[in-house]
Amino acid sequence: MTSTTADVWLPFPAEGIDGLPEGFRYRRWDGEDEFPADPADCVFYVTPYMKSPALTVRPLARMPRLRVVQTLTAGIDHVLGGLGDLRPGVRLCNARGVHEASTAELALTLVLASLRGVPAMVRGQDEERWLGGFYPALADKSVLIVGYGAIGAAVEDRLVPFECGSVTRVARSARAHARGPVHALEDLPGLLGAADVVVLTTPLTERTRGLVDKDFLARMKDGALLVNVARGPVVDTAALLAELEAGRLRAALDVTDPEPLPPGHPLWHAPHVLITPHVGGSSSAFEPRAKRLLARQLTRFAAGDPVENTVLITE
């Protein structure tokens, strides 16, 4: 597939990525106003990382030779709006293998910090107050993981040493797993009431948008913790606010709807909520893993082999 007239757009400088195949012109573009070259020459587009959907899809309509769109995120919802501008046969690939460790690490951090009262203790330190007492432990708690894919499995990997009472898994459809059964989304209503902690790792799709609505939250047990490291619109913010303000549930959110959460939004100061600014994948683990993925993908592409992590092919 190599061609000296074919461009590859990358959000990193090509000289910083080991193992890139020869034969392409590598162009760096990370969302700047000016394109680095004529988009019509691009055959492999690696999207900018953590940029707006409008910016991410901006060059797509001008890329008639495009063969692959490679995201650097596990989710692909931010590029779906631009796929209608592409010719049939373009492969959309996600970054499976890049974010699992980092996102699962943050999910566990949010669970532990929320249960053990760390946010209140940090505020107490600022005010020189000693907030002793007993706090909930993760040990013996029942955990429900909603969205049992690669990230959900990585979350369970990190739960194992903490002696949870049980881990229940839910995915789009039921299947067997070495650790135990994976339930279908349709089974959720009957599972929520038994969970002390509910961790959301599901992708954002039309099926999961607003999944955590008033009914979902009402089925959670009193005092349960909702952790969202998926996408903000998976949760109905107004419904969650009502439960938080009533003091019935707790939440730890790496993603919100809207996002970024604007100043003055009531979620900032709702009781029993911990908010981090969508940093699940943004750690020191990201860049080296992303660069290794790009080197593998482009090597396969140059050799004419199928690329990995294909989520869909345009029609």
Rank of each mutant, 00 (worst) to 15 (best):
T5W: 10
A6K: 02
A6E: 08
F12H: 09
P13F: 15
A14S: 07
G16T: 04
G16C: 01
D18L: 06
E22N: 01
E22R: 01
E22D: 09
Y26G: 03
D33Y: 11
E34A: 06
F35V: 05
P36V: 14
A37W: 14
P39M: 10
D41W: 05
D41H: 08
D41I: 06
F44K: 08
Y45D: 09
V46L: 03
P48G: 02
M50R: 03
K51T: 13
L60S: 02
A61L: 09
A61I: 07
R65E: 11
L66Q: 09
R67N: 08
V68T: 06
Q70A: 08
A74P: 04
D77F: 07
G81E: 11
G81C: 12
G82W: 02
D85S: 12
D85Y: 00
R87I: 12
V90I: 10
R91Y: 03
R91D: 12
R91G: 08
L92R: 01
L92D: 07
N94A: 13
N94S: 13
G97L: 01
E100Y: 07
A101K: 15
E105A: 15
V111C: 07
L112A: 06
S114E: 13
S114P: 08
A120I: 09
V122I: 14
R123C: 11
W130D: 02
Y135I: 11
Y135E: 14
Y135F: 15
A137E: 15
I145Q: 05
G149I: 00
A153N: 14
A153D: 15
V155D: 04
V155Y: 01
E156P: 06
R158K: 09
R158V: 01
L159C: 10
E163S: 03
G165T: 10
R169Q: 14
R169A: 07
R169K: 14
A171W: 01
A171D: 13
R172Q: 14
R172S: 14
R179H: 15
P181F: 07
D187S: 10
P189T: 03
G190W: 00
V198I: 07
L200F: 01
L200H: 02
T202H: 10
P203N: 13
L204D: 01
R207A: 13
G210N: 08
D213Y: 07
D215E: 10
F216Y: 05
F216C: 06
M220L: 11
M220V: 11
L226P: 02
R231H: 08
V234E: 00
V235R: 02
A238T: 10
A239H: 02
G247Y: 08
G247Q: 13
R248K: 05
L249E: 09
R250K: 03
V255Q: 00
T256F: 06
E259S: 13
P260L: 04
P266Q: 08
L267Y: 12
P271T: 09
H272Y: 12
V273I: 11
I275H: 02
H278M: 09
S283T: 12
P288S: 06
A295E: 11
A295T: 08
R296K: 09
Q297R: 11
Q297C: 14
L298C: 11
R300L: 12
A302Q: 06
A303E: 15
G304W: 00
V307A: 07
N309E: 05
N309G: 06
N309V: 05
N309I: 04
V311F: 01
L312K: 09
L312P: 00
T314W: 03
